[in-house]
């Protein structure tokens, strides 16, 4: 345990600054609040935004879970969890239910969240209009003036070209009927979990220096057309380990003849469904 660093690494002044940004974000759901992102011991692009948000809201009584691609044991999740273990001494867990604070990259847990939990999502590119308009000065104006027509032009083009919208992750959403938001690179499969979630959802982009939030019970709608409604990915099969249907499945190539297994991306969810670690039907 290092004694040279403050609790959760950041100094109190910085944490206060970040919490102020978080409060602003909660007050204006979906709006990107600029903040003075600090250089962290992890690389930009590897979750510094999420880490700064977590570091600012974590307290000694919290129980922290960290996942990446839905799994607790991926290297980056391990690295971040260790960072907080070292700098806070806070209890950590792999159980979604037991956690009070969950930092995640690219997935929302399958286990439904409850009131009182905070989910911190790591965001690489916060600006939903970025690929349509590279200039920050212009996109800020577009948000202020609710000029989102160009996003629908993009959806229209997709439908024209492919017969459906081609965005499969980071699927743009409308928050509280006002702000267009990029929900971080979660698969569109997870978008419905954003709508009226009982938990507080916080989004941190360290390199781009933006924080945004979806307060509990906020309406979040994925963009679509009335005659081309938003739809999620589906698989024609169940998890080969636990038999779950309707969970996001990872595809694993298991031999060089192209044999594959499909397994829940959410490792905690999958493990809980398999009593005492029994292998599932596909094993």
């Amino acid at each position: 345990m290092t004694t040279r660093y403050n609790f959760a690494y950041l100094d109190e002044q910085t944490k206060r600054m970040i919490r102020r940004a978080v409060l602003k974000a909660v007050a204006v759901p979906g709006y990107q609040v600029p903040f003075g992102s600090r250089e962290m011991p992890l690389s930009y692009g590897w979750g510094t935004g999420g880490v700064q948000v977590t570091a600012s809201v974590i307290g000694p009584d919290d129980v922290l879970k960290v996942i990446d691609q839905g799994a607790d044991d991926t290297t980056n999740a391990v690295s971040i969890r260790r960072f907080f273990a070292r700098t806070t001494g806070v209890a950590t867990t792999t159980s979604t239910e037991a956690a009070t604070l969950i930092q995640t990259r690219h997935r929302i847990p399958e286990t439904p969240l409850r009131e009182g939990q905070i989910l911190v999502l790591q965001v690489p590119i916060p600006e939903p209009l970025r690929w349509l308009e590279p200039r920050e000065a212009e996109t800020r104006k577009m948000h202020a003036l609710e000029e989102y027509g160009v996003m629908y032009v993009r959806l229209y083009e997709d439908i024209t070209r492919h017969g459906k919208v081609a965005q499969t992750y980071e699927y743009p959403v409308m928050v509280d009927g006002r702000y267009l938001m990029r929900p971080s690179p979660i698969p569109k499969f997870d978008n419905p979990k954003l709508d009226r979630s009982p938990a507080l959802l916080l989004f941190g982009a360290g390199r781009e220096k933006r924080i945004y939030a979806i307060p509990p019970w906020t309406r979040v709608k994925s963009l679509d057309f009335d005659d081309h409604p938003f739809e999620v990915e589906h698989w024609d099969r169940a998890c080969d380990l636990c038999g779950a249907q309707g969970a996001f499945l990872d595809e694993l190539i298991v031999d060089d003849k192209g044999g594959r297994l499909f397994i829940c991306s959410d490792t905690d969810y999958c493990a809980r469904r398999r009593p005492a670690g029994e292998p599932g039907p596909g094993a």
Partner: peptide
């Protein structure tokens, strides 16, 4: 360079969930 290096190299991080979505599409 710190920002650039971080973001360029973050491509090494797992992206298999998003890639899975693309595969499905």
């Amino acid at each position: 360079s710190v920002e650039a290096s971080g973001f360029v190299q973050h491509l090494k991080l797992p992206h298999y969930v998003d890639f899975q979505s693309e595969l499905v599409l």
